Lab assay of single mutants.
Amino acid sequence: GSSGLPPGWQSYLSPQGRRYYVNTTTNETTWERPSSS
């Protein structure tokens, strides 16, 4: 899909309704949208 996220990243919603991002390669999580640069 065209999520616009860098490879390996997925976006999720927290129980509070906030969006966060997870790097499935490194298990890093961040509130900031990852850049593909």
Rank of each mutant, 00 (worst) to 15 (best):
N27T: 04
N27P: 01
T30H: 05
T24L: 14
S14M: 03
L13H: 04
P34Y: 01
S14F: 01
S14L: 03
Q16V: 07
P15H: 08
T30F: 08
P7I: 08
T29Q: 10
G4Y: 10
S2E: 13
Y12K: 06
S14V: 03
S2M: 11
R19L: 15
S2G: 13
W9M: 01
S35M: 14
W9Y: 03
R33G: 03
P7C: 15
L13A: 03
S37P: 14
G17W: 02
P6R: 04
Q16F: 08
W31T: 07
S3W: 15
E32Q: 11
G1N: 12
W9K: 00
P7V: 09
P6E: 04
G4A: 13
R18I: 15
Q16G: 14
E32R: 09
Q10S: 10
T30G: 02
S3I: 13
E28G: 02
R19F: 12
R19I: 15
S35T: 14
T30Y: 07
L5T: 04
Y12A: 08
G8Q: 06
T25Q: 13
T29S: 08
T29G: 05
Y12T: 04
S11I: 09
W9V: 02
T24N: 08
S37T: 13
L5R: 02
T25M: 15
R19T: 12
P15E: 12
T30Q: 10
Q10H: 11
T24E: 09
S35D: 12
S37Y: 10
P7D: 10
R33C: 07
P6T: 04
P34D: 01
N23P: 00
L5W: 04
L13E: 06
Y20L: 05
T26W: 02
S2R: 06
L5V: 05
T24A: 10
S36M: 13
P34T: 01
S35Y: 09
S35H: 12
S2A: 14
S14P: 01
N27R: 09
E28N: 04
R33Q: 07
S14T: 15
S37D: 14
Y20F: 10
N23Q: 03
L13S: 04
S14Y: 01
T24H: 11
R33V: 09
T26H: 02
N23I: 01
P15M: 06
T30W: 07
G1H: 12
T26R: 03
P6I: 05
S3Q: 12
R33I: 10
Q10I: 15
T25V: 15
T24Y: 08
S36D: 11
P34N: 02
Y20H: 01
S2V: 14
N27Y: 09
E32H: 10
W31V: 05
S14N: 13
T26D: 02
T30I: 09
S11D: 05
V22L: 09
L5M: 06
G1F: 11
P7N: 08
N27W: 11
T25W: 14
G8N: 09
N23L: 03
S37H: 12
S37R: 07
W31D: 05
P6G: 04
S3P: 13
E28A: 06
N27S: 08
P6V: 04
T29R: 13
S2N: 13
Q16S: 15
G8T: 04
G4P: 14
N27F: 11
P7Q: 08
W9I: 03
Q16R: 08
G4F: 11
T30R: 08
G4K: 10
T26K: 03
Q16A: 13
P7G: 06
R19K: 09
T24I: 13
T24M: 11
S35L: 11
S11K: 02
Q10G: 05
T26N: 06
S37A: 12
W31L: 06
Q10N: 09
T29P: 04
N23H: 06
R19S: 05
T26I: 04
L13T: 09
L5N: 04
T29F: 15
P15D: 10
S14A: 04
R33F: 13
W31H: 06
T30A: 06
S36G: 13
N23T: 00
E28W: 05
Q16W: 08
T30D: 01
S35V: 14
L13K: 05
E32V: 13
T24D: 07
E28P: 00
G1V: 12
S36V: 13
W31A: 05
T29V: 15
Y21P: 00
L5H: 03
P15N: 07
P15L: 07
L13P: 02
Y21K: 00
L5E: 10
S11N: 01
N27G: 15
R33L: 10
G17M: 02
G17E: 02
T30M: 07
P34H: 01
N23M: 02
W31K: 03
Y21A: 00
S35Q: 12
P7K: 07
L13G: 02
S36W: 15
R33T: 06
P6Q: 04
N23A: 00
V22W: 08
T29K: 14
W9E: 00
P34A: 01
R33M: 10
R18F: 12
R19P: 15
E32L: 12
T26F: 03
T25E: 14
L5C: 01
Y21F: 06
